[in-house]
Amino acid sequence: MVGIVGYGAYIPRCRIKVEEIAKVWGADAPSYKRGLGLQEKSVPQPDQDTITMSVEATKNALKRGPHVDPKKIGAIYIGSESHPYAVKPSGTTVAEAIGATPDIHCADFEFACKAGTEGMFVVYGLVKAALIEYGLGIGADTSQGAPGDALEYSAAAGAASFIFGNDKVLAECNETFSFMTDTPDFWRREQEFYPRHGGRFTGQPAYFKHITGCAEGLMKKAGTEPKDFDYVIFHQPNGKFPQRVGKMLGFTPEQIEPGLLCPLLGNTYSGSSPMGLTSTLDISKPGDKIMLVSYGSGAGSDGFIFTVTERINEVRDLALNTRYMLDNNKRYIDYGTYAKYRGKILTAE
């Protein structure tokens, strides 16, 4: 049995409300809140980035996988579009911080918001092929939206980390499927600070086409249908798209709700659907069947089916659960502080 043997998330403490951003740009906050299905988002402080959040999420994953010796982790893949360096891997720092070096394979992945599930996909394959004993797949981002752009209301920060292995599995991976085409709905050119997007083009031919294509392909491959699942997690660019794509596929709001973090968290890009999975595992019971379908612009989706095991009852409470981190210890900041924290103010060198 191959699957998840430890999982953890991390959410920075700071938050900014939609109203605070809207008032700076003269925008109508209720319209944005209604349109995006979003109330507030997480904000990283200047000393938090993809690397630091990945380390903290992985420490939580190791708490829930206490039998895993970091020295036996054979691969680490961090998916992010906000790696702190253009040239120098994030994974080496995370591997050093958890004591997993030097006998380990490492690569940083990028594929807009699905880079996190790519890492999970690859380590699952390596464990299943018996090339490694344990592997780490991490999705983390401190995503940026251009000032005043719709993305600024949602681009948030967070991380999720999963240890895959084949002993003391807490969620067995039953099936995987990927769906991909060349669709330029969202991009960031080399040397550019903020991403650009195709507006409404990011919807039907991009998010909805790829998630439905992946979910339908995955269910067909596994011989399942929506009613066979207890929970489902879709990528969460806003609070509305996951509900709409769920309805298109035949899922109920109750199947989606436990993993839907976006209304209070924002879009954590590569961390988005993986963090939804951590939140769903936090409330799951042995035997529950979970589907996860990510989405990354450019564009593609990775799909997974997991079955939760008895092990979840032993490890669930060994680390803070994701909803607790989302709902507690928040510090609300104003737009000026947010602009300073996110490097949006030009300063003298």
């Binding site: 200047p46 000393d47 938090q48 980035d49 690397i51 630091t52 380390v55 903290e56 420490k59 702190p84 911080a97």
Partner: peptide, 8 residues
Amino acid sequence: VKIEFRKI
């Protein structure tokens, strides 16, 4: 307090 990994 608890220790966290941060950028220095």
